[in-house]
Write a protein that binds this DNA or RNA. Structure first.
Length: 586
RNA sequence: GCCCUCGUAGCUCAGCAGGAUAGAGCAAUCGCCUCCUAAGCGAUAGGUCACAGGUUCGACUCCUGUCGAGGGCACCA
């Protein structure tokens, strides 16, 4: 609807330009907005106010000239000039009535568009280190990323969903070593677990698997493990040096193959768990991209070479540095350490280079807010490599703070004290969790109230929307049980019978759906859709409470039933985009 | 110290590229089920949009500064 008005105004503007009223250069896509107040009609434009200066006339006069040039259409009931020079458009009721069969014919396609023109977009999200189960902080990124991906797909982009697996690096070595130490404990060895090791129960579980399947094949004498290793922090030493020493010792004592085996065992079990967890949360990927594969394929070295050839690297204190300050970063960054190992940043340069080279028109990274300082250096690297950094957009997701019984819950992966995404799902359900996560703007710090998400009451917005859907289903259930007939061809119904204000309100909301999806998708703001669905559900509940649908008057009944069928379709489409179920019964 | 994000009703948040009288939901008070699911609906009350300047016809929205909250400033990943 909005598009149609936009075209009408555009035509009028071109006419005005042709007549020399306004300069040709001033003609641009007019801004058409929904009015806030229905007294001002359905849509409004400020075009006359914007162009008044260029036309050397006052806004209200220009508005009149514009209206004179507006093509005739059965879409518009009337237009008027208001306030300082707004033009208000009021649609005809037929324009709205035509919407019902249109929605029902389009079915699940109502709200989808081809705006994206099949452009390829990659969305990378979650990408948590596989050193433990996902926690509720990752949940927000998961819900947000997957809804953004689905929204972009709905408006016609070709979307590629990807998880970057950090399967290399020190954190993974710490995990492998933690598993091995727990294994030794299961072999009845006594030891002091390192302060910096991973202490979660899942580490015990993996160690138990190793012990069960391989007995004592990986056992070593504990004194040989700890002897000569730097003191741990509680003993007055450095916890980093201590854990690094233990990693070295593990590699030494187990040998390459056996160490590798423990490492892989941990990685695979945890990754399988993450995959399973996300899938149950309704989050699926096209690709799990391994960090290690970048090193193995030589991509990391290639990226470093390319930077070197572009004269962006220099050596200092035995390490190789990238001149990221030349591209706006606050300090230069190391890509190869003095021990010859490439840094995580080097992998990330290679990864982002690879992303752009895979031919995506746009690359979106969904990161936790704690990574924001990382953006300038990645963009710097892309610029230095001669790529276009504007093709990369980083969306930052703020932390979610969990509350239970009004108390803030603390969490930390290392200490093993956290609420996992799995626990959250079990406690509040995937539907409520997803809806809650996505209800807030991503850059907004979020308070996640567990009690509220769990409550099956009016306080809970998820149930509110789902309930509207179930209620509509129930009406048709009733019609079937009472054998009340109704016309099932939406185009054979007289919608002129829909004259109640509640019906008009509902129709207006239904018409807004495509605009909402488009705007949500383009601004990467799923919360717009959740708010919309709440309003739509509210329009329906209000209507439901004041009017009966299964009335005697069959023509009126037909019109009302088709209207709520269209409503059900939109609720369903919207919930589906959020990855939330639309139950028939509640 | 520097950088990023945020600061709207008692609480949690909307306010879409500046536009016509600031919006919801909780919580509070008062109403509505012999009637298609009361997980619902209606009504009342509640706000110098953190503060101070600036930009203009017009600022919650843009710019600068102050204050406050969170996060980031590794040869960790």
């Amino acid at each position: 609807m909005k598009k149609q008005i936009e075209q009408l105004v555009m035509t009028a503007l071109q006419q005005l330009a042709a007549k020399g009223v306004i300069p040709q250069a001033a003609v641009s896509r007019p801004k058409i907005e929904r009015t806030r107040d229905s007294k001002h009609g359905d849509f409004a434009t400020n075009a006359a106010m914007v162009l008044a200066k260029a036309a050397r006339t006052n806004p209200r006069e220009l508005a009149q000239l514009l209206l004179d040039e507006l093509p005739t259409t059965d879409l518009l009931d009337h237009c008027d000039i208001a306030g300082p020079g707004f033009i208000n458009f009021t649609l005809t009721s037929t324009a709205y009535h035509r919407l019902i069969p249109a929605i029902l014919n389009l079915n699940h396609r109502y709200g989808r568009s081809d705006l994206g023109n099949g452009k390829r977009v990659q969305v990378e999200f979650v990408s948590a280190n596989p050193t433990g189960p996902l926690h509720v902080g990752h949940g927000r990124g998961a819900a947000y990323g997957s809804v953004v991906a689905d929204l972009l797909e709905a408006v016609g982009f070709e979307v590629h969903r990807e998880y970057y697996v950090n399967d290399a690096g020190r954190q993974m070595d710490i995990l492998a070593t933690s598993i091995w130490l727990r294994y030794l404990e299961l072999c009845d060895e006594t030891l002091t677990f390192p302060a910096n090791g991973y202490r979660g129960d899942y580490v015990w579980d993996i160690a138990a698997t190793l012990h069960r399947d391989h007995g004592e094949a990986y056992k070593q004498d504990v004194t040989s493990v700890f002897e000569g290793v730097a003191e741990d922090e509680p003993d007055g030493g450095d916890k980093e040096a201590h854990i690094d020493g233990l990693i070295e010792r593990a590699k030494q004592l187990l040998g390459d193959n056996r160490y590798r085996f423990v490492f892989e065992l941990g990685l695979n079990i945890i990754l399988d768990d993450i995959r399973d967890d996300l899938s149950l949360f309704g989050v699926n990927y096209d690709e799990w991209y391994s960090e290690r594969s970048l090193t193995e394929s030589g991509a990391v070295n290639q990226a470093i070479e390319r930077l070197r050839n572009n004269n962006q690297l220099y050596e200092k204190e035995g390490a190789l540095w990238f001149r990221s300050t030349d591209f706006g970063d606050e300090k230069d960054r190391v890509v190869v350490r003095d021990n010859g190992q490439t840094t995580y940043f080097a992998s990330d340069i290679a990864y982002h280079m690879d992303k752009l080279e895979r031919g995506f028109d746009r690359v979106i990274d969904v990161w936790g807010a704690d990574h924001h300082g990382y953006i300038p250096r990645v963009k710097a690297a892309l610029t230095a490599l001669g790529d276009d950094p504007s093709r990369l957009d980083v969306l930052l997701v703020q932390f979610a703070i969990l509350y239970r019984g009004g108390e803030k819950l603390q969490m930390s992966t290392r200490s093993g004290q956290f609420v996992t995404l799995r626990e959250l799902r079990k406690e509040v359900g995937a539907d409520a969790a997803r809806f809650f996560y996505v209800m807030r703007k991503c850059e907004q710090h979020m308070d996640f109230d567990l009690d509220l998400a769990k409550s099956q009451s009016s306080d809970n917005p998820v149930y509110y929307v789902q309930y509207a859907h179930a209620r509509i289903c129930s009406v048709f259930q009733q019609a079937a049980e009472q054998q009340i007939p109704f016309e099932d061809d939406p185009s054979a119904v007289d919608y002129g019978r829909l004259s109640e204000p509640h019906e008009q309100a509902l129709l207006t909301s239904l018409a807004k759906y495509p605009e909402t999806v488009e705007s949500s998708a383009l601004s990467e703001e799923p919360h717009q859709l959740t708010h919309y669905l709440r309003e739509l559900a509210n329009d329906f509940h209000t209507y439901y409470n004041t009017h009966k649908f299964l009335v005697e008057d069959s023509a009126l009944r037909d019109a009302r039933l088709q209207l709520i069928l269209a409503t059900r379709q939109v609720l369903r489409n919207g919930l589906n985009l959020l990855g939330v179920s639309a139950p028939e019964k509640m």
